[in-house]
Amino acid sequence: MAPVLDDLYLRPAARTWRCPPAPPVADFHRALPGYAPTPLVELPALAAELGADRVLAKDETRRLGLPAFKILGASWGIRRALEHGGAARLVTATDGNHGRAVAAVARMLGLEARVFVPAGVHPAARAAIRDEGAEVVDVPGPYDEAVRRAAAEPGLLVQDTAWPGYEDVPRWIVEGYSTLFAEIDAQLGGAPDLLSIPVGVGSLAQAAVTHYRSGGAASTTLLSVEPDTAACVLESLRRGRPVTVPAGRTIMAGLNCATPSSLAWPYLRDGLDAAVAVPDGAAARAVHDLAALGVPAGPCGGASLAGARAAGDLARGTVVLLITEGADANPAV
């Protein structure tokens, strides 16, 4: 069992764990209309605060025309799924950004999309999905219930969480996220010392683990950050098995997930160096501070800074904060 210091989970053995690499998908993304690497923004004021050499924000607030990174996974996952069989309608469940990305790809391909949205998602996020041409189905329950409703719906299910018997499409979605980490390394000229990763079901963190644990030297410390009201990965790490936590409410709506992805879990269990849960107040403060520095983060993106602050001495060397969504993706603060 790895040690736990207050609310910070640590697993020293993660640094030596290895896994196979993701297939190269960057060429696919480069061919998409409007593709460009998202900025890596230097934040010297935060470096001074944290005692790090450098702090940089990977700013995903504008990715292929959307205010979040999710279209990287949705576009690749849908392409691979359609190669295995056609579909007239795409179906998914979402806390906001994934559903909007699926809807956008459906619109590009001339397909219908039906998106199941749980309670607690801001009306503006629902409207943004509709504006992409998708049908939105409101679910009066948590994210897990929206996933169950979507999985029972006719059409091609494009879900970014996995469960036994449903893992191919989530695997392709995770592969799509690898472009983000390849961009970071190219922009830095090497790997960061600490990567702070906002976590819902764990798919983005799985992609980070795959990228940084599949090479030779794996020097990057991987920190997962969750809302303290929905810390399913942190609780699963503490118990040594995947668990479902009670559904809560949080301004970090895109991270409000109660159960880790079954596909992500082995990677998170073995490849994460650290995990922490942060309260809404810490995320709101981070959003405010990032905005003052010119980074328009939403609450999920702000979680990465809140997590780095909570990680104490782990935030040393070159620190990269994943700003996974813009303020207009979830206008909660």
Rank of each mutant, 00 (worst) to 15 (best):
residue 238 R to C: 08
residue 27 D to C: 03
residue 145 E to W: 03
residue 8 L to F: 11
residue 239 R to Y: 06
residue 228 D to G: 02
residue 317 G to E: 08
residue 226 E to W: 00
residue 22 A to W: 07
residue 320 V to F: 09
residue 177 Y to E: 04
residue 62 R to Y: 12
residue 217 A to C: 04
residue 145 E to N: 02
residue 279 P to H: 02
residue 194 L to A: 05
residue 251 I to G: 13
residue 180 L to K: 04
residue 33 P to I: 03
residue 226 E to G: 01
residue 39 P to V: 00
residue 108 M to W: 15
residue 106 A to I: 11
residue 330 N to F: 06
residue 111 L to K: 14
residue 5 L to V: 15
residue 195 L to G: 09
residue 49 E to P: 01
residue 312 G to N: 09
residue 2 A to Y: 05
residue 179 T to A: 02
residue 178 S to L: 04
residue 73 G to D: 06
residue 48 A to Q: 15
residue 49 E to N: 03
residue 222 L to F: 04
residue 182 A to Q: 13
residue 129 I to A: 02
residue 155 G to A: 09
residue 264 A to C: 08
residue 160 D to V: 02
residue 183 E to V: 00
residue 186 A to K: 02
residue 100 R to S: 00
residue 311 A to I: 01
residue 245 V to S: 03
residue 16 T to D: 14
residue 100 R to K: 12
residue 52 A to N: 09
residue 174 V to P: 01
residue 234 L to D: 05
residue 269 R to Q: 12
residue 222 L to D: 05
residue 43 L to P: 02
residue 38 T to P: 03
residue 151 A to D: 10
residue 277 A to G: 08
residue 1 M to S: 14
residue 170 P to G: 11
residue 273 D to F: 03
residue 232 C to L: 08
residue 279 P to N: 10
residue 3 P to M: 07
residue 140 P to D: 14
residue 56 L to K: 05
residue 73 G to Y: 14
residue 212 Y to C: 00
residue 202 G to C: 11
residue 125 A to M: 10
residue 172 W to M: 02
residue 293 L to E: 01
residue 305 L to E: 03
residue 290 L to V: 06
residue 32 L to G: 07
residue 67 P to M: 05
residue 213 R to E: 05
residue 210 T to Y: 06
residue 286 A to Q: 02
residue 188 L to Y: 00
residue 16 T to I: 07
residue 221 T to H: 14
residue 323 I to Q: 03
residue 204 L to N: 04
residue 80 R to L: 05
residue 73 G to Q: 10
residue 64 L to Y: 11
residue 217 A to N: 06
residue 23 P to F: 11
residue 139 V to L: 11
residue 153 E to P: 03
residue 43 L to Y: 03
residue 121 V to S: 05
residue 265 W to P: 11
residue 139 V to T: 10
residue 218 A to S: 13
residue 175 E to H: 14
residue 42 E to I: 00
residue 331 P to Q: 13
residue 315 A to E: 09
residue 251 I to T: 12
residue 301 G to C: 10
residue 27 D to V: 09
residue 6 D to N: 12
residue 188 L to E: 00
residue 132 E to G: 07
residue 41 V to D: 00
residue 4 V to K: 15
residue 3 P to G: 05
residue 247 A to H: 13
residue 294 G to N: 12
residue 217 A to F: 06
residue 86 G to T: 13
residue 143 Y to D: 05
residue 304 S to A: 14
residue 288 H to W: 15
residue 201 V to Y: 06
residue 313 D to A: 15
residue 16 T to S: 14
residue 201 V to E: 03
residue 146 A to T: 10
residue 174 V to M: 13
residue 168 D to P: 04
residue 306 A to D: 04
residue 317 G to V: 07
residue 257 C to E: 09
residue 5 L to Y: 14
residue 240 G to D: 07
residue 305 L to I: 03
